[in-house]
Design a protein around this nucleic acid. Structure first.
Lengths: 233, 233
DNA sequence: TCAAAAGTTGACGTTTTGGTCAGGTTATGA
DNA sequence: TCATAACCTGACCAAAACGTCAACTTTTGA
């Protein structure tokens, strides 16, 4: 996911064992650029961002940004790559060997937490999808489809085992995605809806509790453990 | 919401009774521009669209677009205005005198139908919110807040009347918004999730059914046909 | 110590783009 | 018919934005 092939190749740190911490200038600069670009792309979309802005925000002169990344598009694509990793992580909670209520609750919490902590990444992803996913590679989309299918199978196994009522699993995924991303992606709307100025951790916790409660009850998920009250951590 | 004041004033159709159909060139041109611009803004965001594109797509030369709209921003704002009307319409379904199950179901259907029929408007709105709502006026936001509050009161009245279990009404709104907009706004993701090429009417119907089922059951909305007439606005 | 590699940067060139304008054509209404 | 208003448009401009470059400084490794 580094700048470009030739430059990445130059990095060969085996031949440069001087610093074990290896706080290479390159790494720091690339990170700074990526972070600045992430925030900006998230808020203004690909076309809305000037590399001069990225440069300014990352504290580097424009020409230096071009030293690390051959083009604006390359910066953007590098960020898209990072995104997809995070996308998967929450889904990992959905495993067939877990109790449905537990797994679904954990998924909702993880997804909300991800979008809370990585708000700008989440918005960047939303932005990209909204525009039709121009920059998503076929591999990216194949991976996402496969992931969805696998997790759908997990939930269908719970349904088959009578642990929850039969529903259109894939539509439920969409409900969950929509609900969990809303707070980060459409923060303005969420704030208006909640009649607050800024969304806090507490609001996210309430969101998790509400979404979990409705979805679990909505799917008639059986709660074997009589307790399992609110959806903490 | 027309181009600008002076130009709109000139329209004074009382003094020009020649055509009753009044298929004024102005009206057609403005509509063409707005439609073309809507599609483009939805897909590429404000900064991503060049007025040359709008011109081309609406079949007019660029300078002619400027004849009707003083600036790109004015075209964008005109569209935002149209959006908010649609936004309200679905919410009208939520009236205290209706039965909760009926009203909520109708709301979900109306919201989905709106985003299906006016996909590009929905995406444009999403785009605008994602970017922090730069072009939303204070009046716009005040209106939306007031609308949300009113409808929250309606649902809370149902809760108070024991017609559904107590939940965080405003978080439920967010769930509903997220779920109902997803299909239009994040079509790419929705297609991948549903393992289909394009979303059809049938998919929207299934979505409505699933969302309604989960939310109604999730909120323990009582389906008793008998009562549900204690609150009368 | 020192040459080569890595990193930095101000200034520049080219293209794009929002917006303007002067002058043309068509519709309107008396 | 004819004056006026509405409408249309090719050509143009200044600002901005992407990307380049040559020269400069710092770091590296032997």
């Amino acid at each position: 996911m580094a700048a470009s092939m030739d430059q990445a190749a130059r990095k060969t740190r085996a031949s440069r064992p001087s610093k074990d911490v290896d706080e290479r200038v390159r790494d720091r600069s690339e990170a700074a650029i990526l972070e600045a670009a992430g925030e900006l792309f998230a808020r203004k979309g690909f076309d809305g961002v000037r590399i001069a802005e990225i440069a300014e925000r990352s504290g580097l002169p424009k020409a230096n940004v071009y030293y690390y990344f051959p083009s604006k598009e390359d910066i953007y694509k590098a960020l898209i790559g990072k995104l997809l990793a995070g996308w998967d992580k929450a889904l990992e909670e959905l495993r067939a060997d877990r109790k449905p209520a537990e797994a679904l609750g954990a998924y909702i919490v993880a997804k909300l937490e991800y979008s809370r902590q990585f708000g700008s990444e989440s918005r960047l992803f939303a932005n990209e999808i909204l525009r039709g996913g121009r920059f998503l590679s076929k591999a990216n989309r194949d991976h996402m489809r496969a992931m969805t299918r696998d997790k759908a199978v997990v939930i269908e196994s719970w349904i088959a085992a009578g642990k929850m009522s039969p529903i259109s699993v894939r539509h439920v995924f969409i409900m969950l995605w929509g609900a969990t991303q809303f707070y980060a992606d459409f923060e303005v709307l969420a704030c208006d809806a909640l009649a607050i100025k800024r969304i806090t951790k507490k609001d996210f916790d309430e969101a998790a509790a509400t979404i979990t409660a409705i979805v679990l009850r909505g799917c008639n998920v059986v709660e074997s453990a009589a307790e399992a009250r609110s959806t903490d951590t």
